[in-house]
Nucleic acid binder design. Sequence first.
DNA 1: TATGAATGAGGATTCATTCAT
DNA 2: TATGAATGAATCCTCATTCAT
Lengths: 219, 219, 219, 219
Amino acid sequence: MFDKFEALSEEKRLRIINSALEEFSLRQFKNASTDAIAKNAGISKGALFQYFGSKRQLFQYVYKYACDTLAKEIWAKVDLSNPDILERLKGIFMLKMSLYRKYPSLFAFLLNAYARETDEEIRELIKEDFDSQKSGAYSKIFENIDYGKIRKGFDPEKVVSIIIWAMEGYSNTEAAKLKSEDISMEKYRHWLKELDLFIYTFRKAFYEEEEENRHGQGD
Amino acid sequence: MFDKFEALSEEKRLRIINSALEEFSLRQFKNASTDAIAKNAGISKGALFQYFGSKRQLFQYVYKYACDTLAKEIWAKVDLSNPDILERLKGIFMLKMSLYRKYPSLFAFLLNAYARETDEEIRELIKEDFDSQKSGAYSKIFENIDYGKIRKGFDPEKVVSIIIWAMEGYSNTEAAKLKSEDISMEKYRHWLKELDLFIYTFRKAFYEEEEENRHGQGD
Amino acid sequence: MFDKFEALSEEKRLRIINSALEEFSLRQFKNASTDAIAKNAGISKGALFQYFGSKRQLFQYVYKYACDTLAKEIWAKVDLSNPDILERLKGIFMLKMSLYRKYPSLFAFLLNAYARETDEEIRELIKEDFDSQKSGAYSKIFENIDYGKIRKGFDPEKVVSIIIWAMEGYSNTEAAKLKSEDISMEKYRHWLKELDLFIYTFRKAFYEEEEENRHGQGD
Amino acid sequence: MFDKFEALSEEKRLRIINSALEEFSLRQFKNASTDAIAKNAGISKGALFQYFGSKRQLFQYVYKYACDTLAKEIWAKVDLSNPDILERLKGIFMLKMSLYRKYPSLFAFLLNAYARETDEEIRELIKEDFDSQKSGAYSKIFENIDYGKIRKGFDPEKVVSIIIWAMEGYSNTEAAKLKSEDISMEKYRHWLKELDLFIYTFRKAFYEEEEENRHGQGD
DNA sequence: TATGAATGAGGATTCATTCAT
DNA sequence: TATGAATGAATCCTCATTCAT
């Protein structure tokens, strides 16, 4: 299965995968056009069906590819050694942004698949995968987090929720601004500065004094 | 344009609009069936096309109707007299939740349109509208806000962003849990309690001491 | 089901059925072209699918129609009161020939369906029907046959087999000559004369003397 | 034409012919897969088209091959020295049955081609060939037949037709029972006994007394 | 010469849109 | 004006045939 496809040159394979990623991120499974995928990949419709058998199997292949690629990229790079949730989320934010640069369609494809897809069979495929990945991801993100730094009088769970929602809000806002344009070094530097401001704010708002001092001193 | 439609009796007009709202909230524009819309509205397909010319124009009409209706509802009820951002957001959250109950199809339609629609022309229509509405909405939300209460040392803009993102995160999380089931009074009470906890947390984290005291005393 | 089709005028319905009969008698189910059926019936492809839903259902409808029509025609006209196998087979032969005139494609369609069809689902549909019809038909043909007239020294079963095979051979030979051209009255008279000759031959060959005499006297 | 094919080794040629015979006996011309033919012959699809130009020409070649082979076999073995039609038909029946055993695919192919093929061009090819072969065959079968034995009062032509149709009916009935299973010696003996009974019946029914006597004495 | 990947025309089916009644 | 049957363009998929290697 998919032997014929995997026997192709990497260049051609990527052309096809990226064409499919783009089409499937623009349209639902049902409306995505195999014609468009073939055309944009520079191959014939017949070839597409020789490689993947059906539109459905093409989706499955591309979906698996996207998940694997993303998982490899993310878990290879998130630093789980730092027990500070703020530093960890900062790492995840920067990673997320860099992935937009590297695989613009891939990200859009996965979001589209999860948020918009209505084809039942496809939803099932996604749900299984997504739920297991998500719970895995969340448990990894919260692994070894040190809640001791949070100021007395706060519900640590609420505080962590607020921080995560705020970080998500920020990364979504920035991602929406990006679209598929290139990300400059300047942009990176800007984000790092902004993130430090957010982190400073969170620390000052929710952490014990000493933390703030340490931060103040280190600054 | 749409003269023929607007000449109909209100009862018939509503039947048609509601049928379209429901179909468009269940399916993407391209997959929505004009047959189903006509059937559920109890009119013939031919009539539908005589009123609106095309499926696309029908969508546009219904979309505009939904936006207008919602805007009227929201701005009629949000209390802009209270200069405290926290109280104002609490009001918006409760309103948002109550709208799920009042106009399930209309709300679902707008969410679906904004979040799931992939038809390019439709997206553009939505975006324009949405952006102008959003900027209007945001300027209204921030109208007369008293930033003076925010603790010195914080960037008020960042603090407000964090609060808004966190509130959005919470309302999205809760909305996702809702689906289309009915909202009980108990649910409302639960939300009010939770919101008060969030507000307490925000106040304690970002507001001047005295604010916190006032809250503590008032509780 | 098929309501829309049955609501059409008889003229249009017959045009469609005959077009389908012809196409399905020329090609196997799989190769039969819905395009050709629609075109020859003078309707659009879309209409065909509105009436029947799918090519498969169209076949089923047409098949049932063919069976019902044929059964009605045959059993309405075969005279089962005459206990002489020769007279009865003569009746069946004449009937078979007259059916070629009335429903040329219908006959070809049923033969084609039984002899050539390879689509499994279609075969099953046919087999059930055909086997039950055939056993019913055979039991009717042999109902009340008087074997007493067959000359001593012959195995009556063999004699009847020979007569039936010979009659089938003759009717197939004649049917093959016919194709779809019209059958003249002259042709009918010719067949009747030929049949009488065959019957004379069978009687003289296989029946008791007295039978032959009676025949001789009656001639 | 076909030079390239005929230049191949006999072993390879037979592999290709047998593969085509099998595929064409399983499916109609249109549904037969050139892919399957090439694969089962152990050659590439490209080679197949280089040898034969098109699927149609491949069929023609194979059809001609089948006809020639069969004709050679048949006329080599039918004993034309015996002037008795009954003995001659008995020989043909036994030969026909033995050919099922010797060339199952070839026989199945020809039957399939004649009985089931619906492609018009192919049908024409078959018909021409078949008609010329048939008339040739019939003239050979009736060569040197002694009609003198037939009882006075019968039309010899009719009698011979009846005998041939009955024999065909019997051989078709038996062939239908066979399918592709092997033919045992017992089966052969059974057929010989049955044939003798039929011949006895025909002789008694249609031949002059003395013939019958001779038969009765010889039995 | 042999290969088998690539091509693209052809077929079933769907559905927005039209139009005769 | 209202109807809903009819249309036909568009979509997925197959497979004989071609052609670069």
